[in-house]
Design a protein around this nucleic acid. Sequence first.
DNA 1: GATGAATGAGAATTCATTCAT
DNA 2: AATGAATGAATTCTCATTCAT
Lengths: 188, 188, 188, 188
Amino acid sequence: MTVDAILTATTRILIEGGYDKLNTNYVAQVAGVSVGTLYQYFPNKESLVLAVFEEHAEEMLGLLRRASSDLRDVPLETAVRAYIQTMIEAHCVDPELHRTLIRQALHLGVHIHQHIQSEAIAIVRSYLELHKDTILPNNLDIAAFLLVTMVESATHNMVVEYPDMLKHGDVAEELACVVLRYLLPHSF
Amino acid sequence: MTVDAILTATTRILIEGGYDKLNTNYVAQVAGVSVGTLYQYFPNKESLVLAVFEEHAEEMLGLLRRASSDLRDVPLETAVRAYIQTMIEAHCVDPELHRTLIRQALHLGVHIHQHIQSEAIAIVRSYLELHKDTILPNNLDIAAFLLVTMVESATHNMVVEYPDMLKHGDVAEELACVVLRYLLPHSF
Amino acid sequence: MTVDAILTATTRILIEGGYDKLNTNYVAQVAGVSVGTLYQYFPNKESLVLAVFEEHAEEMLGLLRRASSDLRDVPLETAVRAYIQTMIEAHCVDPELHRTLIRQALHLGVHIHQHIQSEAIAIVRSYLELHKDTILPNNLDIAAFLLVTMVESATHNMVVEYPDMLKHGDVAEELACVVLRYLLPHSF
Amino acid sequence: MTVDAILTATTRILIEGGYDKLNTNYVAQVAGVSVGTLYQYFPNKESLVLAVFEEHAEEMLGLLRRASSDLRDVPLETAVRAYIQTMIEAHCVDPELHRTLIRQALHLGVHIHQHIQSEAIAIVRSYLELHKDTILPNNLDIAAFLLVTMVESATHNMVVEYPDMLKHGDVAEELACVVLRYLLPHSF
DNA sequence: GATGAATGAGAATTCATTCAT
DNA sequence: AATGAATGAATTCTCATTCAT
């Protein structure tokens, strides 16, 4: 319960003021506990952000994993659109937090960010494997890398930098076009 | 000359130790001047990073602008490949610095990053405009946004996170495929 | 049993890390009990060190007392050599602990250290009293003070700072010379 | 000047409240400067104490060195008495400080304490060398070690623990007896 | 223009101690 | 008797910034 309060406080501060405004005394205060208590559960400031990050990453990966198992036997077109939708939703869960966390992930060492990306790539790759006969790309490693990178960046950018674009769903559809035209031999 | 020394020092420290290790006294020391002098040219720490960022951004945009004017009358396929190559080169100029600066751009407020991206989008959009009859996408705003975002993220990720992939040029070619299949009616 | 575990833990930490590394939570942890338990037996941190000190002091004084009663009727020469040997042994029981404790004794207030020294002086003085006819010094208070101080410091320094000197017993013999030439009219 | 103020403040606090009461903010306050200034000259708290220690050590060694050169050609008896007197004076310069510093020397690592002692031993040894024909001890290393250790501890103890004894000069004279009877073949 | 000593608010972290269970 | 979560005052150290020379 205490841990939860601390994590919630960290998240809130991170969203409102960014890493710069995050200081352990303030976190403790917002969490309604004393600094000492905070340090009983987290060895240092960094670990606080890491914990929030991991939570958030797990949530996002959860969405992706669920989608991937749901979409195993669905035609590619549907799957791609659903995947993109999932990514948009994942980013919408808490765009501000996401923005800050990505920033901090870079800041604290990229391994975790890479870890998420690696898992995402693996998931996408195994999906492509299943459909390798119907898709154009031969090198699935490269294909998975590009797809994950591009869909992630596009959705991220959309949600974080150009939220207006989200309003009319065209961007999502256009992104689906990019992906499908890349994967399938017939144009869309 | 003094300004240059300061900027060079800032860059070096930024690359080596990141924003955390950047402190004005240290910058001054590395630059071989006194803090006071530093503050005679830069009002605060942030402006230091901003200046470096702008320099770097200008360099990258320069490459892009030059490419765009060179490619005005070249067939799309060549143009796309050249554009991608340009972006890779732009990132390779100083990957570490780029990584750090992107991080800091986010950190200091996104406007500058957005500014670069906006100009890039404008350049790409005007290029698409010229070829609007031969390409598939109708909404050039969206198309330009997606292309810039995706090519940027893919090249960035490639250079910064998976430098091994660069070795064999397949990824660049595959990325060209993504773009070309999106833009042109006939498959590649 | 609990008290013992706590005292043992205190001793170990004191030896390994000094007073600086001694903190009640850590002591409790090493002792395998909770802090609360520790505070049920010891009112504060200081009392912990005091208890260890007293134990150690008692051990050293025990050696001295035993020696003194054993040596009551032995000729001075033998007695002096045995006394020096005893002091060396007393220091060797646990040199690291001794070093730390002396440090801490000073730290916490000198009374205990003085207490030990006082008793040592008393013991030596009463021995000198028995032989006052055969020894040179008239003022037994001063003589006892000097003997205890010097033998203690020499053996301490030897054991703690110059352990190599201990290897060949010459120093002990030379120290015996100092004492005997001081006490007895004929040279050695 | 600033450095001096800081060192003076450190000394005063050390004397009054011991190492426990020494904290950098307080030192700065007493010195009449800000903490930042303090840290511009001393990298950390420890170095503060070290600097005071070194100053004090240098002062004591200075007395000893001067005495040693003054006493080069004086008969042993005079020299020994003067040496003892010098040591007493050295301790009397600032007994409280000396007490605290010895404590802290041990605390911070013994090398400096050893360094002082080494030099003292060297000085005494070279004096004994000059008189090696008239003195009893053969092993001058051991003799110097014992003399320095014993005279230091006796004077220290006298000044610090039993200041009353100082009042009537008998202890000094008695200590001289110890030394002289050890060094010279004829009794005193 | 250049200098660099001085500032001091601010932040991370520690640890002796308490007390409800 | 034992527990151990919670406390929060205290302490060390940092660094952006100023300003008299």
